[in-house]
Design a binder for these strands. Structure first.
Lengths: 278, 278
DNA sequence: TAGTTTTCACCTAGGTGACAACGT
DNA sequence: ACGTTGTCACCTAGGTGAAAACTA
């Protein structure tokens, strides 16, 4: 890791400031790979209707149909090393189950893992080329939320707090050859979320009570000396709607809590019935 | 891992059959790097005098002086990618402490880690070249031993049992660039020893009650198509006398047991006094 | 008797949600 | 009220040597 500088990635971190599903016009249904990009219906319900019941079927429109959402600017001709890459989200049905309820992810000062863990299968890389894999998190909108316990629903509580430092998490095996990435499931289980603005552990900093969309980036490590010039061509971004979530310091929706307890092995101590009942 | 075949390593596995310190004439004090190879005094005491008291100072002759024992056939001109490589054993004083008592390593059917763990710092690699790092274990002699509890010493119990399958343990990060290997300590903590001849977990198979010398190999992954032809030039082997040990299924020397308990964090449960008393 | 195998209590190391305490 | 923080019991996962059981 950290063999290569962030130069070729500046394009990523800068774009992380916007809201890719809405305000950024050059993100859309892609070319090349099977692309299940879904129009911004899922978060739109949040943004527009502002009040949303748990039992709504809104998750269905976010789950996507195919193996992954490939979202690249239309006008950039991608390098052949990334253009053919496709990605399949693991534990997709579990993600969808959470998403249907409105996924919440705990953030703590020390940093908390995500559950479910973001993990993918990768196809179509050049086996001999070097790639870096990384994730970042973009706000789904500019709102702050609060949870209404009385009717189990999220409410808009105002405009978003000031944006957190836009960090990026490199998969610790980066960089590595395509053959290695494709050999087995790539897991981002080391990634941790924090609400500590002064965090110096390299964790992802998020605002509690805000909504986020995880993004997955495949970056071809260009051996050319002037590789910065090709930065835009050398990466490809994948977005899975079903992985969006609300950052919280304590779970709000009781059904999310129960699903976490039921499906996360580390929460086994809080189960009171067989895990197969789910 | 396993990106490259064993072709370039056949030379290693084949040489693992002999006893490099004695019968193999082309192993000796080396060229190139600082080389603390010590004449076969250490094991020689085992082979020759056959009976050895715990309190002898034999360990002192095995501990070596410099940063590592580099042992290569004299007549082969090494590739520049490996000729400048040097290696420093971590926890050297702990290894020496064990070696002074006569190190024992547990072997189990399921596989047991080594303690101390074999770990090294590496210098002088080409930062951009790819290397594989691996370990193997060669018999120190052709003897079988038993422990005489009455006077706390090892006795020769006969000729060695049939040799075990000569396996090799690749460091799981192999292959990787020199820059990555040199960045931090390289630890072989995943390596496990077994006495199960039918082991299919890829563990190192050893005969209990036999003496072994761990070896550390740095292999330059040659990008040339006919790289097999340069196999001999592309690797360099390091031997640290102080890491030799007797494989056992249960500790024989009570002082070894006590030192393991005192120094291995996982054995903390068996301590009855402060760990700083050592 | 000498050595091996299995089981076990006890650790390391660290990921869970519950909960009480603490802010604002 | 609402949200955050730290502590805690309870897990996962797996590395220890002790001791009993087993095998020639």
């Amino acid at each position: 890791m950290s063999v290569f500088t962030a130069t070729s990635l500046s394009i990523l971190t800068s774009s992380a400031e916007g809201y890719p599903m809405s305000s950024s016009p050059d993100w859309g249904s892609s070319v090349g790979t099977p692309c299940s990009f879904v129009q911004p219906q899922g978060y739109g319900q949040y943004g527009a209707s502002a009040l949303l019941s748990d039992s709504e079927e809104r998750g269905l429109s976010c789950s996507g149909g195919g193996s992954g959402g490939s979202c690249v600017p239309r006008d950039v001709q991608k390098n052949v090393r990334v253009s053919g890459v496709s990605v399949q989200l693991e534990m997709k049905t579990l993600w969808e189950e959470f998403n249907r309820l409105g996924t919440e992810m705990i953030v703590t000062k020390a940093g908390r893992r995500m559950f479910p863990t973001f993990q993918v299968k990768i196809f179509g890389m050049d086996p001999l080329a070097d790639y870096a894999l990384l994730m970042d998190f973009v706000p789904l909108d500019d709102k702050r939320y609060r949870y209404a316990f009385h009717n189990s629903s999220w409410l808009v509580a105002g405009k978003a707090d000031p944006a957190t430092p836009g960090r990026v998490h490199f998969h610790p095996d980066s960089p590595a050859r395509g053959a290695q990435w494709m050999r087995q499931i790539v897991s981002f289980d080391k990634l941790k979320l924090t609400n500590n603005l002064l965090d110096d552990n390299g964790h992802i900093i998020l605002n509690s009570m805000h909504r986020y969309q995880p993004r997955f980036h495949v970056v071809f490590v260009d051996p050319r000396k002037d590789s910065e010039r090709y930065a835009e061509q050398n990466f490809k971004t994948f977005i899975f709607q079903e992985t969006q979530f609300t950052a919280v310091t304590a779970y709000q929706n009781h059904r999310i809590t129960q699903l976490k307890i039921a499906s996360n092995p580390f929460a086994k101590g809080f189960r009171d019935c067989d895990p197969e009942d789910w």
